[in-house]
Design a binder for these strands. Structure first.
Lengths: 238, 238
DNA sequence: GGCCTGACTTGATCCAGATCAAACCGCTAT
DNA sequence: ATAGCGGTTTGATCTGGATCAAGTCAGGCC
């Protein structure tokens, strides 16, 4: 795979110079991960940060009582575990598992520490990236508390098609990239409720056939979901 | 007020040298804020980062439909809006309002940008602080989805008394620092439910008299709440 | 073909927490 | 004191989503 190209298209490295990326290529590591296999567990020492080249990886936590909460599912072009690498304890505060066959690039913590020490511009880039991730978490918190299940499903579809499709008007088609059970967990709803939510969205022109979803009018859906485009840049990176 | 002392006890500046803090004193600004008055609104340009010297300030968002979600309530010794200052857009993604009469220290964005450029160690400190904040948000997400209302109330009390009291064993007393309505909003429950949750906690030795709460045994409460001390350092800074 | 198996849907019931409504303080100001 | 008011509690009801329990349906495999 073309590591340079993948890394350059990451939010984390978008503003980083070619030289640094070349240097990075020398110390990072490719990693294949079969569907269902673990990348790391909560509490493991955070030795690397990861970029997804292919597939999908979920970050999640399991509470004492056994409940699993999915923090996010990362796909091609996204990076994760920045905060774990930069925080003082450098421990992963979550678990990571592939939900589809995946290919990752692992970048060692030491690379970042060195680079930040010698290049302040790089440090600012990293700060920006971590801050953006935080913004995303805040949005997620808000969504969870202020929107109904069908609204969350709708918002998910909109974000997802914004990131994968052309921004033109008219009907759009999205293909869910992983199991519906994972999507529903990500939105903190049960599979049964997810199913019913999709059924409900038919009323406003969202048709589902297996994993293929057709949205008649994104605007209508956005209205229904209290979804504001303005607030979410909806680049692949968010 | 003694700015140096307050700033030094912040998670953000704990590892920062005396020199830098002295320098900072020259460019920061004190700000008084009456209960109920606004500090900034969502979308405002993020010109400063704030440290709370006295009082309590809530960060919140309001959705299109009018629902208010409180992200966090910050008290003495805590800082907020780091991410807004460091992110590329430098815009506040939330609103801030004092929930009690408060005194703040405003540190201009430019100070950070300069310092990061000239001092990589400082940059790493900031990265660590922002990462810690992110960790906190993740915990909040998890709590929200995996714990019942009374459990969240219990966990709140435990965190709160861990940050304000002596770590010794036996019964503890906590005094809520702001309206119960604010506490309940912070925990994403309605005031009525909050009241009932406190009533329910009486079963396990938590007595409430106005704003004064007495916890008979923190261990019992922690067991009930699925609360793991290990995971939450429970310094004032988290 | 038939028959698993695993992913999803559908239906019936249940329950935590929201909502609506009223009462209950403990203030301050008349 | 008493009236008024904001914060809080209590009670009665409603409801979205969870839970439990059957179905359906498509693909792999003997």
């Amino acid at each position: 795979m073309d590591i340079t190209k993948i890394i350059q298209n990451t939010a984390l490295f978008r503003n980083v110079s070619r030289d640094i990326i070349e240097e990075l290529k020398g110390c990072c590591q490719e990693k294949k991960l079969g569907k269902g296999s673990d990348l790391f567990s909560m509490g493991d020492p955070a030795t690397s940060l990861f970029v997804v080249a292919k597939g999908w990886v979920k970050l999640y936590r399991v509470s004492i009582s056994g409940h699993e909460s999915i923090i996010h599912v990362f796909g091609p072009g996204e990076s994760f575990a920045e905060a774990a690498v930069f925080s003082e304890e450098h421990i992963y505060p979550v678990c990571a598992r592939a939900v589809e066959d995946s290919e990752l690039i692992a970048i060692p913590r030491s690379f970042f520490i060195h680079k930040i020490e010698e290049d302040s511009h790089f440090a600012l880039s990293m700060l920006g990236a971590v801050s953006a991730r935080q913004h995303h978490l805040i949005q997620q918190l808000e969504q969870l508390t202020s929107r109904s299940a069908p609204q969350r499903v709708g918002a998910f579809l909109l974000k997802f098609c914004a990131s994968s499709g052309e921004p033109e008007k008219g009907p759009k088609t999205v293909v869910l990239p992983y199991d519906k059970a994972i999507v529903s967990a990500r939105l903190n709803i049960k599979p049964e409720t997810f199913s019913r939510a999709l059924a409900k969205l038919e009323e406003i022109g969202v048709k589902t056939d297996n994993r293929t979803v057709t949205i008649e009018s994104c605007q209508d859906l956005a209205d229904y979901c209290d979804f504001t485009y303005q607030d979410t840049p909806c680049r692949k990176s968010c």
